[in-house]
Design a protein around this nucleic acid. Structure first.
Length: 270
DNA sequence: AAATTCTCCTGAAGGC
DNA sequence: TGCCTTCAGGAGAATT
């Protein structure tokens, strides 16, 4: 599933192909995504130029001449640069056809999104209340500490809350808590400044390393075929229920926390 | 206000 | 081989 590193890698991968390109047409095959795709986009978008390709949280932002396209990959979405002559597959829901190349969106589970806005992007309802980027200087131990004092929720839920910090999905929440030695169920408000400093640093480290890995694995965004396109990650605990903890050897435990699968070592995480 | 539950959807995996 | 069931999950919306 696309976590922040995949979205960042996608952003960097597609940018050189579509930046400064004029959109010829939008081919919309399946408008029923996370939210219905506005059909009128098909006549509004052609003729507009891609002025910027950015990422905010897990949203991709295509800055166009007259507004911004927001693309979210949901949990099974991917974007590829293909030739428009390549026949679309069953789950290829839309193309942004630039003539010279074509940006194709595939998403079997349709949790993804394509939205258009002409308002200043930071005011968009989906982005307005988001916390800082995890890789920015605004995100650090003090930020986590300050925002958690009144919170009784499990620290894992806390760091996955987009209003606290964006882009920490289930996989990296599990991995970061393991590396930091923090039990996922520990109450967010009862974690010391020092431990939050460690956690924030770990989250940055884990995300940076995954982006680096993605850069080498997903180097080629051109003419890729059927594969989902996410890079295999070297995971320590995620999905490793029953397997030995890489640190102490005791069995990795799986437990549902906040409707999400959690994996941790009860001996190493407190 | 904060926490919890519900919701969208389909591929993969397991059981028989 | 094939059919059925269960599960996973990003994150906004609805509910408690």
């Amino acid at each position: 599933m696309p976590e922040l590193p995949e979205v960042e890698t996608t952003c960097r991968g597609i940018a050189p192909h579509i930046l400064n390109q004029c959109l010829h047409k939008l081919v919309l095959r399946q408008p029923r995504l996370r939210w219905p795709v506005a059909v009128e986009l098909s006549r509004q978008l052609p003729g507009q130029v891609v002025l910027g390709v950015e990422r905010r949280a897990k949203y991709l932002l295509l800055r166009m001449t007259k507004g911004t396209l927001l693309i979210h990959l949901g949990m099974s979405g991917s974007l590829r640069i293909v030739s428009a002559t390549v026949a679309p597959g069953r789950h290829d829901h839309f193309d942004l056809d630039f003539g010279s190349c074509c940006l194709r969106f595939r998403d079997p589970r349709r949790f993804g999104a394509l939205l258009w806005t002409t308002a200043p992007i930071e005011q968009h309802p989906l982005l307005a209340h988001l916390g800082p980027e995890p890789l920015s200087d605004f995100f650090n131990g003090k930020h986590l500490h300050d925002h958690s004092r009144a919170r009784r929720t499990a620290v894992k839920n806390f760091i996955m809350d987009g209003r606290v910090v964006v882009g920490v999905g289930n996989i990296y929440a599990n991995e970061s808590l393991f590396v930091s030695g923090i039990h996922p169920l520990r109450s967010a408000g009862h974690i010391s400044m020092m431990r939050y400093a460690r956690l924030a640093a770990t989250i940055k480290e884990v995300l940076r390393s995954a982006i680096e890995q993605g850069g080498t694995t997903l180097r080629d965004f051109h003419n890729q075929d059927g594969n989902p396109g996410y890079f295999a990650q070297q995971l320590l605990v995620y999905g490793k229920a029953g397997q030995p903890c890489p640190n102490c050897g005791s069995s990795i435990r799986q437990q549902t926390i906040g409707q999400r699968s959690s994996f941790f070592c009860i001996r190493c995480q407190h």
